[in-house]
Design a protein around this nucleic acid. Structure first.
Length: 592
RNA sequence: GGUUUGGUAGCUCAGUUGGAUAGAGCAACGGUUUUCUAAACCGUCGGUCAUAGGUUCGAAUCCUAUCCAGACCA
């Protein structure tokens, strides 16, 4: 039971004793006391006026007095207008702290309540990953870690988009212009090599359109008749018909891409429990179409196409199956959703996909609900904003992207320059330095993307490198490293420390109160499905600790009780920073 | 045209179910190291919370309308 729940209980008791009235827990509004006032928890009394029949200040005074005299937990109070500021007994804070530094998994919920599947990343195999994908990957991974900490069983899934016309485009371009180039011969990562031909296709295609338009054909017509596009469409048909030569090329090029992705994923630190491939799932969903027709949820038009009418739900009529019987995206997604439920029987299924697909998922979830799928209520689209450049949207085929591999390399290099210029680590072995640069550089990148609310779009200016000072990962990493340094200096076994009840100085109490919020933060981040909640909390915590650090010497403190207290606080802070960061996929260095 | 998300300091963002004088970081300026890591700390400057109404003891937060930006559906 956390402190708010405890106090709520006490206030209910108090009101029943003082005013002979019962009150619902929801009516009791508690918040953290603002720094400028005495106390740690504040009861907002305005809404209790009706219950007490008295003015807010009078009510606050009466409740405060009762709590002070009748409970051990509350030792003092003060009233400001309708706010009752409560001072909690030191023994409580010491208890919390004690639990924290003994339990390195403080705040984690160990009993598994529900199973949740998170689908994220879901790349196309025709080009390398860019900054937008990085946001997706980090959000998906991080949310998975947060949900695990909050007591969910998590399955991370990746639905690879490995077929379709866009894949055929790079294949056609490679066939025409590739000269049997390989990643080895070109000295390129496999995904970059394939991406090169995706760009090449677009260039050739545009050129051909231009020539056709110049010869007097309309642009629309030119787009359709361009021979390179027709080749791509033919290749898609050949692929569907399993023409060996095409399948072979497809397999070869995809395998290059997978080798490239594996490297990028590894460096990003993301992983998956389950892979789905669109090439294996794209025919799913046709049975659902039958099911929908039988149930009367779908209807067939005279031209034989299948539709659903969602106008009553404020949406449109949506096509489910084309007149020629071929699938559209939503058909596959219906099938894949059912497949996933069949495979895992999860309670919740989260799709981490950009906000451009909000409409699509609204339709998908609605259809599944209308089909009477009991699991449809557990579907959720984690929609996030685009990462845009000052010049606008990133487009792979036009080459206007911030490449994930390049960016990571730049960030690591930036971290290296910065670290070397500080010149504190001259005695560190080179191998260790490389690890550190990567922790700092990647940490800064990840934090940059995760600290903002997923709903918001992010503007990334490649000309301005990502900060390493202020509200950044290195700030928090530094706080961690510094705590480690102090703990090395005092050289005690933290688990052996006994905390005696002593007066808590203000700085000490403030940081303990901050640390005590960690379990609630995990829950709130899980509920809101937002790693940003964790990121912002960790920044506040690090800031609070730094404030404490500068006013509270540890190694030179002669009062043993106070020294132990500070060691305990430092140790607890370190483990919260480390655990919190691990939920964001960011590592902490022992030294920096 | 419709749906939807956002708009908070020069810039990047926090701001819990409505609560106290709207907070951080960056940038700018000033200070702190014979003391445990100065990637730090302390201070100064900076606000019509897009706009206008409404709800109420109380609104950045809820409601309505409008403006701006993004995304999507025709």
């Amino acid at each position: 039971m956390n402190i708010s729940e405890k106090i709520s209980g006490l206030v209910i008791q108090c009101i029943s004793k003082l005013y002979q009235k019962d009150i619902e827990t929801e009516k009791i509004i508690l918040q953290q006391t603002r720094k400028e006032f005495e106390g740690e928890i504040t009861l907002v009394v305005f809404s209790l006026g009706k219950t007490s029949g008295k003015k807010p200040e009078q009510t606050a005074l009466e409740i405060g007095e009762w709590l002070k005299t009748n409970t051990d937990l509350i030792v003092d109070f003060n009233v400001v207008q309708g706010f009752l500021n409560l001072t909690i007994a030191n023994f409580y804070w010491l208890e919390v702290l004690h639990e924290q530094f003994l339990n390195t998994q403080y705040g984690y919920v160990k009993t598994i309540a529900e199973k949740v599947l998170i689908e994220y990343s879901s790349p196309n195999t025709n080009k390398p990953l860019h900054l937008g994908h990085v946001r997706n990957n980090l959000l998906g991974f991080s949310l998975g870690e947060i949900l695990k900490a909050a007591g969910f069983e998590v399955i991370k899934a990746n639905l690879v988009n490995d077929r379709g016309i866009h894949i055929c485009k790079s294949m056609v371009a490679y066939q025409k212009f590739g000269n049997d180039e390989t990643p080895e011969s070109a000295g390129l990562k496999g995904d970059h090599l394939v991406g090169k031909y995706y760009v090449r296709f677009d260039q050739e295609y545009k050129l051909e359109i231009k020539n056709l338009v110049d010869s007097g054909i309309s642009e629309d017509q030119a787009k359709k008749t361009a021979s390179i596009m027709q080749e791509a469409q033919q290749m898609l048909l050949d692929w569907e018909n399993g023409i060996p030569k095409v399948i072979e090329l497809w397999e070869k090029m995809n395998s290059w891409v997978y080798e490239g992705f594996a490297i990028t994923y590894k460096q990003l630190g993301v992983d998956f429990d389950q892979y789905y491939y669109e090439s294996k799932t794209y025919l799913l969903g046709k049975e659902i179409v039958e099911e929908g027709l039988e149930k009367g949820v779908f209807f067939r038009k005279p031209d034989n196409s299948v539709w659903i009418d969602l106008t009553a739900d404020g949406l449109d009529e949506k096509i489910i199956l084309r007149a020629d019987g071929t699938s559209v995206y939503i058909t596959q997604d219906l099938g894949t959703a059912e497949q996933k439920y069949h495979d895992f029987g999860m309670d919740q299924s989260i799709y981490v996909v950009g906000n451009e697909q909000e409409y699509h998922f609204k339709v998908l979830f609605l259809i599944l609900a209308k089909l009477g799928k009991t699991w449809a209520k557990g579907l959720y689209h984690l929609s996030y904003g685009m990462v845009d450049l000052p010049s606008g949207k990133m487009k792979s085929r036009e080459g206007t992207v911030v490449d994930a591999d390049d960016l990571m390399a730049e960030m690591i290099n930036e971290a290296k320059i910065q670290t070397e210029s500080l010149g504190k680590l001259d005695d560190m072995p080179n191998e260790q330095k490389e690890v550190l640069y990567s922790q700092i550089g990647l940490g800064a990148l990840k934090y940059f993307l995760l600290k903002v609310d997923p709903k918001k779009r992010i503007l990334f200016d490649p000309k301005e490198s990502i900060d390493l000072q202020g509200n950044t990962a290195p700030f928090i990493q530094y706080t961690y490293a510094r705590i480690n340094s102090v703990l090395r200096k005092v050289n005690v076994d933290v688990s052996e420390i006994k905390l005696n009840t002593i007066d808590l100085p203000k700085a000490e109490k403030e940081i303990i109160v901050q640390l005590a919020n960690f379990p609630a933060i995990i829950q709130s981040a899980a509920k809101e499905r937002s790693p940003a909640v964790v990121a912002n909390y960790l920044f506040e915590t690090a800031k609070e600790y730094n404030h404490f650090y500068h006013s509270s010497p540890i190694s030179t403190e002669s009062n043993q009780d106070l020294k132990n207290l500070r060691i305990a606080i430092s140790s607890a802070t370190a483990s919260i920073l480390k655990n919190g960061f691990s939920m964001l996929g960011i590592q902490v260095p022992e030294k920096m």
